[in-house]
Computed example of a mutant assay.
Amino acid sequence: MSYRVGIVGATGAVGQELIDLLYARNFPMESLTLLASSRSAGKTITRGDKSWTVELACPEAFDNLDIAIFSAGGSTSTDLCPEAAKRNCVAVDNSSAFRMDPNVPLVVPEINAEAVRGHQGIIANPNCSTAVALMGLWPLHELFGLKRFFASTYQAASGAGAAAMAELEDQVRSWVKGEPMKAEQFPHQLAFNLLPHVDKFFEDGYTKEEHKMLNESRKIMNLPELRASTTCVRVPVLRAHSIAINAEFERPVDVVKAREAISGFAGADLCDEPAENRYPMPIDFSGKEKCGVGRIRIDSALDNGLALWVVGDQLWKGAALNAVQIAEALVKLDAVAVSV
């Protein structure tokens, strides 16, 4: 079978990656419809000999679609995902709008692909940092039993969209020319700087992004008692997030076995030869499907602890790729039909 697929937010950074990935992975498409807001409707997008006119994202746009992948922000998803579901179109949503809804599966296909069977028309894609971190944590959890973890993220400008990436590039050019740097996408200059601030702050001092790491990890891994503490940092890197993780497990850990588990996991690429200066870096894992895992060592402060470093492309595994993999799981498990 082939399917009628739509992309909501097709002109954005993730939307552009979705187009390329659907074709690169040979997703069985009868047709592809590109949707966006009134600001972008009417634009033309071209890939090779294929061209599309971007259509307005509205409820009626889903009447003739089987699967719609959303990457247009929470308000758009809140309004239109239920409309898609009403029209028997499965909504795969990249925003945070439905992630913690108990009736909506939150899916990382390498971990819980079977969860797509329980959808009622909407499936949520996790936050970018959560998806990347779990590519290192899940195989270790299966081996040793994850109890808690601490994480510090090093998040690229790509996590804030195409305009943020362009601003970082503009700031670097301005610095080279000795001109003032403009900061509009972030609260401060990002070039040659670090911002310990991703998303809004809550009263407990953590940001929304930091809360997502704990709450989403619990749901995806089915570990309701999991404990985690995260500090999310925006760094002057264009693409691919990096995460330093210190994890404590229920059972005694072993570095050799940990490396074997990472090597055998579908979502990870073991890159751990420190003596040869080989470890995951954003520059090497941009545009790659797998996330790099390295610097695996016994943690010196935690019982049954391991320290590790995970790097993954925010626009791919952190967003577009995971969404396409969810769509692939729907097809493989014959779960495209909406059951309300």
Rank of each mutant, 00 (worst) to 15 (best):
Thr76Gly: 04
Pro105Trp: 03
Ser71Glu: 07
Asn94Trp: 00
Asp334Ser: 12
Asn88Phe: 10
Asp199His: 06
Leu302Phe: 14
Leu195Gly: 04
Ile111Val: 13
Ala164Asp: 09
Tyr206Leu: 12
Leu214Val: 08
Val336Phe: 09
Pro236Ala: 05
Ser339Lys: 14
Leu22Trp: 04
Arg39Pro: 01
Phe149Trp: 03
Ala323Ser: 15
Thr231Cys: 10
Glu83Lys: 14
Asp63Ser: 13
Ala163Lys: 09
Asn222Lys: 12
Ala240Val: 04
Lys332Pro: 01
Val198Pro: 00
Arg99Asp: 05
Glu110Ser: 13
Cys128Pro: 00
Asp284Gln: 06
Ala301Asn: 10
Val172Ile: 13
Met100Ala: 08
Arg25Ser: 08
Thr33Met: 09
Asp204Met: 04
Glu328Asp: 12
Glu250Lys: 10
Tyr23Ile: 03
Gln120Leu: 05
Glu276Lys: 13
Glu60Lys: 07
Ser174Leu: 06
Gly48Lys: 01
Pro274Ser: 05
Tyr154Leu: 11
Gly145Thr: 07
Arg259Leu: 05
Ser339Asn: 14
Pro139Ala: 06
Lys212Thr: 03
Ala85Met: 03
Asn277Val: 03
Ala240Lys: 02
Phe192Gln: 10
Glu30Gln: 15
Ser37Cys: 06
Asn125Cys: 15
Ala156Gln: 03
Glu273Gln: 13
Ser229Lys: 07
Trp316Arg: 12
Ser217Leu: 10
Ala320Glu: 04
Thr53Glu: 15
Cys232Asn: 12
Phe202Pro: 00
Ala91Cys: 11
Pro280Gln: 10
Asp101Pro: 10
Phe150Leu: 09
Arg173Asp: 15
Cys291Glu: 02
Thr33Lys: 15
Val108Tyr: 06
Pro252Lys: 03
Ala320Met: 04
Tyr279Thr: 11
Leu32Phe: 11
Phe202Tyr: 13
Phe201Pro: 08
Arg99Ala: 15
Tyr279Ile: 12
Asp254Cys: 14
Val331Pro: 07
Ser152Ala: 10
Glu83Phe: 02
Ser229Tyr: 11
Thr207Val: 08
Asp170Thr: 10
Gln189Trp: 01
Asp299Ile: 01
Thr78Arg: 12
Lys43Met: 12
Cys128Ala: 15
Ser263Thr: 13
Lys86Leu: 14
Leu308Gly: 12
Pro282Met: 05
Glu17Lys: 08
Asp204Gln: 04
Ser263Gln: 14
Val198His: 10
His211Thr: 02
Leu223Lys: 11
Phe62Thr: 02
Arg239Pro: 01
Pro126Ser: 09
Asn88Tyr: 05
Phe144Thr: 07
Lys177Met: 14
Arg259Ala: 12
Ser77Arg: 00
Gly267Ser: 08
Arg297Leu: 07
Glu60Asp: 14
Val255Trp: 03
